[in-house]
């Protein structure tokens, strides 16, 4: 599983960082990006799913290895 933050949609709500701090970085202005190329360790998959499901701007997407991207 991989996560991705769309920089054009991110408005700095910081929900992904609060829910999955090992998967996302926040720059000094508060905008998020994925760490480690978005690679999600198996034990972080639920945290990644929650990060995506709690983004008010639908900026965080998840790409499953054997499925397409989902918001």
């Amino acid at each position: 599983m991989r996560v991705h933050v769309d920089p054009d949609r991110c408005q700095g709500h910081n929900r992904c960082y609060a829910l999955a701090p090992s998967l996302f970085a926040i720059d000094e202005l508060g905008y998020a990006s994925e760490l480690n190329g978005g690679l999600v360790p198996p034990e972080q998959e639920e945290a990644a799913r929650r990060a995506a499901a709690n983004c008010p701007e639908y900026a965080v997407s998840i790409v499953d290895s054997d499925a397409g991207a989902s918001p």
Binding site: Q11, G12, H13, R50, A53, N54, P56, E57, Y58
Partner: peptide, 15 residues
């Protein structure tokens, strides 16, 4: 509530 993309702080550029 686990999935909660609420808009309490607004949306878009004026978040």
């Amino acid at each position: 509530r686990a999935d909660n993309r609420h808009a309490a702080f607004g949306l878009g550029i004026h978040r």
